[in-house]
Amino acid sequence: MSDVLTATGLTRSLTMAGRSIRLSRRNVDAVITSMMLPLMLMVVFIYFFGGAIDTGTKYVTYVVPGILILCASFGASTTAVGVSEDMKGGIIDRLRTLDVGATAILAGHVAASTLRNLASTALVLAVALLIGFRPSATPAAWLAAGGILVAFLIAFSWFSAAIGLLARTPEAASGFTFFMTFLPYPSSAFVPIDTMPPWLHTFADHQPVTPLIESIRGLLLGQPVGSAPWVALVWCGGILAVGVGMAGVLFRVRTA
């Protein structure tokens, strides 16, 4: 999949990304759902449960970084449905007759997903600021948090694209990606990990989403982050490598 680095490959990838964005504009209900669900969950956790959860700080301050990751994971998972719909509808075969390869098609889906998710994340952050979230990050910390979030979006979008190739129907693809969107729950997103049962504590402490949330929370709130950002980036790199590798193999198998 190295052809994306060439001028022709980049042009084709951008064209495919534009196609995916245009398709998103036609599927308004899915776009609204991907933006509104994280907002609704944020409101539910802050106003319904926040008063009963002790995190040592205002709950809105604690929970917003986790909501940002939840929003990103939910948005990235929609890539699987888009890829699966292309496979089922025969669009992939038509594009291949035009000499458009796997890299351009899948990279287009990933690029469009990343742009959609950045818009959704910006909306969630704006609403969070309105209801009391007060970050104290420096410009450098904002850039670092944004970089980690983009790395997560790209990595999970590529993995989601591989799931879309693996699934035989868009419905199955949506079901598979449920596990991706579930990961923020058994993490430090909504409650401190040390309040969980020991067996769940171990899983939450060693799954990929926790260092992502701890990194973004620490960077936005001006708290020490230790090695969490590097651990988060290693996880993102591993997920990206697996996603790209799986997508390449599955694309060849499905289009053989």
Score class of each variant (00 low, 15 high):
Ser187Trp: 00
Phe159Ala: 14
Ala141Gly: 09
Ala241Gln: 05
Gly218Phe: 00
Ser160Gly: 13
Ala137Cys: 07
Ala247Thr: 10
Ala151Arg: 00
Val234Asp: 03
Phe203Glu: 13
Ile163Leu: 15
Arg134Lys: 13
Val244Met: 14
His206Cys: 04
Ser227Arg: 11
Trp158Glu: 09
Leu149His: 09
Gly243Glu: 08
Ala141Thr: 08
Phe133Asp: 07
Ser215Cys: 02
Ile216Val: 12
Pro198Ile: 10
Val231Pro: 01
Ser227Tyr: 13
Ala172Val: 15
Phe152Leu: 15
Trp235Ser: 13
Pro211His: 00
Leu130Val: 15
Leu200Ser: 09
Pro224Tyr: 03
Ile239Asn: 09
Pro208His: 02
Thr195Asp: 07
Met180His: 03
Ser215Val: 01
Gly164Lys: 04
Leu165Cys: 07
Ala151Pro: 00
Pro208Cys: 03
Val225Leu: 05
Gly132Glu: 03
Glu171Ser: 14
Pro184Ile: 02
Ala144Lys: 12
Pro139Gly: 05
Met196Glu: 00
Leu130Trp: 05
Gly146Thr: 07
Leu149Gln: 08
Ser157Thr: 13
Ser157Arg: 11
Thr169Ile: 05
Gly222Met: 05
Ala161Arg: 09
Phe178Gln: 13
Leu233Arg: 01
Phe203Arg: 10
Met196Leu: 14
Ile148Cys: 12
Leu233Ser: 03
Ser136Asn: 14
Trp230Ala: 15
Val225Phe: 02
Ile239Lys: 08
Ala140Ser: 14
Gly132Asn: 10
Ile239Tyr: 10
Leu165Trp: 02
Pro192Glu: 03
Ile193His: 02
Gly218Asp: 04
Met196Tyr: 08
Leu183Val: 15
Pro184Val: 02
Ile148Val: 15
Leu143Ser: 13
Ala162Glu: 09
Leu233Gly: 02
Pro208Phe: 02
Leu240Ala: 12
Pro135Trp: 06
Pro186Gln: 06
Pro197Val: 08
Ser157Met: 10
Pro184Asp: 02
Met180Lys: 05
Val150Ser: 04
Thr177Tyr: 07
Met180Trp: 08
Val225Tyr: 02
Arg217Met: 10
Ser187Ala: 04
Arg134Asn: 08
Gly243Trp: 06
Met180Pro: 03
Gly222Leu: 06
Pro192Ala: 06
Pro192Gly: 03
Leu212Tyr: 04
Glu171Gly: 12
Leu149Asn: 03
Gly237Thr: 01
Gly226Thr: 00
Leu149Phe: 06
Gly238Arg: 04
Val191Pro: 02
Leu219Val: 12
Val124Ser: 05
Trp199Met: 12
Pro197Trp: 01
Ile154Tyr: 01
Gly147Gln: 08
Gln223Ile: 01
Phe182Gly: 05
Val234Ser: 11
Ala137Asn: 09
Thr181Arg: 11
Phe179His: 00
Trp199Phe: 14
Ala128Tyr: 05
Ala161His: 07
Phe152Ser: 12
Ile193Ala: 03
Ala173Phe: 01
Leu240Trp: 07
Met180Asn: 11
Thr138Gly: 12
Pro192Phe: 04
Leu166Lys: 06
Val234Asn: 05
Leu123His: 07
Phe190Tyr: 11
